[in-house]
Design a protein around this nucleic acid. Structure first.
Lengths: 152, 152
DNA sequence: CGCGAACTTGAACAGAGGTTGAAGTCCAGG
DNA sequence: CCTGGACTTCAACCTCTGTTCAAGTTCGCG
C-alpha cells in the first residue's frame, strides 16, 4: 500500500528527485498521478531505482538498464518470477563485465608483471569479443609486428 | 625505437585519432613533437591507451584513470616495477568494482530470488561504503520501516 | 622537387546523464 | 480554510567523452 511521493522515494533511494523524473522520462520507472497531477510511486519503484544505480556504477548505460527493466511486467508489481527471469537474462552480461575487470586486474598483475611487459603475446589478453565490439579488425592488443618486448 | 604517428597509434590501439588528442589534452598520454610540430608517440603509449579503454569499459572515469596513470614516471618509459606499483595500488579499487557487480548479480539471483523479495533484510546488500559515497545517511537499501515484504 | 595523404589547432557540435531555476499548483498540519 | 513546503512543467545549463569541420602545414614517396 501507501504510495510514495517523489521526494520520499528520492530520499529513500538516495538520489535526487530530478534524477527520478529523468528516469521516468526515459521509461525506466513509472508512476501514477494524483487528482492534482502529482506523481505517486509504488514501493517496487524503490527496487527499480536501487537496481538502476547499482547497474550504472558497474559501467552499464541507462539504455541497457532500461532494456532489462522493460522485460518486467507493465501493469502489475513484479513478482519473484519476474525478477528471476530478468536475473537469468542478465547473468551472462554481468559475468562478462566481471571478466573484463578481472582481465584488467590480471593484465596488470600478470602480463605486465610477468617480465615480458607485452600486452600482445600473453594468453590473458584474449581479443575475442573485444574485436566484435570495435568492429574494425584485430587491433586493440595486437600491436607491433616484431616480437621484442616493449620495454625501452 | 621507432616512434608512432597519431594515425598509426590510433589504428593499433583501435581508437580514433581525435580520442588520442583528447586523452593527451587531459594528460593521460603524452607525445614528443617533430620539427614540424607533429605528435610522435612511444610504443609505451599503446599500453597506456589499452589500459584506458579497458578501465573505461568497467565504469571508471578518465579522471580516475588519469590519476592512476599519473603515478607512472614522467620522463622515462615505465618499467615493470612502475606498472607493478600501479597494479598494487589499483587492486583494491578493481576488487571493489568486481564486488559491486557480484552484489548486483547475487542480489538478483539470491535476495530477490529467495522469496522475501526484499533488498533490505538480506545480508548480501551491505550498505558500508555505499553510504560513505552518498554522504547522506543510510538510505539506499534501507527502505520502509515496517518489516513486511515488498510484494504487492 | 612535387604532390597527396596525414598532420596541426580551434571551435562547434553530439549524446549521455543529469541539475537548476522560473513560474505556477497542490496538499496537509494547525 | 490558510499557508508554507513539496510538487508540476519546461527550458536552459552543466560535465564528460569525444567527433567533426575548416583552414592551413608537414611528411615522405617517387
Amino acid at each position: 500500500m501507501s504510495l510514495l511521493t517523489i521526494g520520499h522515494l528520492a530520499e529513500r533511494a538516495g538520489v535526487a528527485p530530478s534524477a527520478i523524473r529523468f528516469y521516468e522520462a526515459k521509461g525506466l520507472v513509472s508512476s501514477v498521478r494524483t487528482a492534482g497531477n502529482q506523481r505517486r510511486y509504488e514501493q517496487s519503484s524503490l527496487r527499480r531505482i536501487a537496481f538502476i544505480r547499482t547497474a550504472q556504477r558497474v559501467g552499464l548505460s541507462l539504455e541497457e538498464i532500461g532494456a532489462a527493466l522493460a522485460t518486467l511486467p507493465d501493469g502489475r508489481t513484479p513478482t519473484k518470477a519476474d525478477w528471476q527471469r530478468l536475473s537469468r537474462a542478465w547473468r551472462p552480461r554481468l559475468d562478462e563485465q566481471i571478466r573484463r575487470i578481472e582481465e584488467l586486474r590480471d593484465r596488470l598483475d600478470g602480463c605486465i608483471g610477468c617480465g615480458c611487459l607485452s600486452l600482445r603475446t600473453c594468453a590473458l589478453s584474449n581479443p575475442d569479443d573485444e574485436m566484435a565490439e570495435l568492429g574494425s579488425g584485430p587491433v586493440l592488443l595486437e600491436a607491433r609486428s616484431d616480437p621484442r618486448p616493449i620495454v625501452s
